[in-house]
């Protein structure tokens, strides 16, 4: 059984014990009488009083929610959290950010959340709602009118309905950005890459998270792709339209990958532009397949010569497929080779 699970239950148990202890001390302190005899007599009276039947309805009397390390402790007592679980919201992920979890606890499903969920259901499918809320529970603190304005902004910029749906569902943080910020960012990308209106719409709907991504990181990768890798402006435009993710990945890994592909494997810029997926594949995968092909004398990537191996062989498919289709050998040969690296 998971250790984490045990800890969580022990917390609840501990809180319960502490609470029951407090009750006992409270009854004891209420007997504040100087005379010892009187105190003992009163104590027995007090205990009698506890044993005597009570005719009042006490079901509404409940203790406060005690402090807890996680949201799971509150789920049984809170209808809101139960509803969220039924929506597939992962509370254990939300509680990783304590300030967000605290905010979530202050909400009520009927008064604060229903409107938002109803509004979002126009754009996000109900089965994906849980993923959406898990990623961005703070959406409930946004004013619904603001959200409507932000959607209207997208409509005014002539995004199609499909595109708007995709943007909102793929990037739960999009609606958190004010129209001014989104407008500025769209303008920034349009200007940086010299995109037309149609192209920026396609980019935003292909990778909505790029628009709201950390601009410092985007700028850093822009520098690497332009200056260190040496892609031209029009080539960069081609790259961002096909693989916008390149501007979001780790800069060091990107450069290392390019260095291996371009300088060790001698693949030209033009070839990389045709199959930019190769820049998104982890380096060790390309490396081990390339070394294996080299070992077999098959590392020939020039399409004009015979026995040509397409670049996609290096990153696509499983190792078995790769061995069968391109390296023309058994998967065990490849595994044996990997054990000599």
């Amino acid at each position: 059984m998971a250790l984490g699970y045990h800890i969580k239950h022990n917390v609840i148990l501990y809180l319960y014990l502490r609470f029951s202890n407090q009750l006992r001390t409270y009854t004891y302190n209420s007997v504040s009488i100087s005379n010892e005899n009187k105190r003992i007599r009163n104590l027995t009276n007090q205990e009698d009083a506890i044993i005597n039947s009570c005719v009042e309805d006490l079901s509404t009397v409940a203790p406060y929610f005690p402090k807890s390390f996680n949201l799971a402790a509150y789920t049984n007592g809170s209808e809101t959290l139960q509803k969220l679980i039924k929506l597939n919201v992962d509370l254990s992920k939300i509680e990783k950010k304590p300030h967000v979890a605290e905010k979530l606890l202050q909400l009520d499903i009927n008064s604060n959340m229903n409107g938002h969920i109803l509004f979002l259901s126009d754009f996000v499918k109900m089965e994906n709602m849980g993923i959406f809320i898990t990623k961005n529970p703070m959406i409930f603190y946004q004013n619904i009118d603001d959200l409507k304005v932000r959607v209207n902004y997208l409509m005014s910029k002539r995004f199609s309905d499909e595109q708007i749906k995709y943007i909102i569902w793929k990037n739960p943080f999009w609606l958190m950005f004010s129209t001014v910020r989104i407008d500025r960012r769209l303008g920034y990308f349009q200007e940086k890459f010299k995109l037309t209106g149609e192209e920026i719409r396609n980019l935003a709907s292909k990778k909505p998270s790029l628009i709201t991504y950390n601009l410092k990181h985007v700028l850093c990768n822009l520098f690497i792709i332009k200056e260190e890798m040496g892609f031209q402006d029009h080539e960069m435009k081609h790259l961002i339209m096909n693989k916008p993710k390149l501007w979001m990945i780790n800069d060091k890994a990107l450069l290392q990958r390019f260095d291996y592909i371009h300088n060790v494997m001698n693949i030209s810029h033009a070839r990389i532009l045709k199959e930019p997926e190769i820049l998104l594949c982890r380096n060790f995968r390309i490396k081990q397949r390339h070394l294996f092909l080299q070992n077999r004398g098959r590392a020939q990537y020039d399409p004009l010569k015979e026995n040509f191996i397409p670049l996609k062989a290096l990153f696509e498919g499983t190792d078995t497929e790769f061995c069968k289709k391109y390296a023309k050998c058994n998967a065990t040969d490849f595994n044996d080779f990997l054990k000599t690296l």
Partner: peptide, 14 residues
Amino acid sequence: NYADHPLACGPRYI
């Protein structure tokens, strides 16, 4: 018991 739900108390194995 909702507190035991994997969505509430996290994945079973960490």
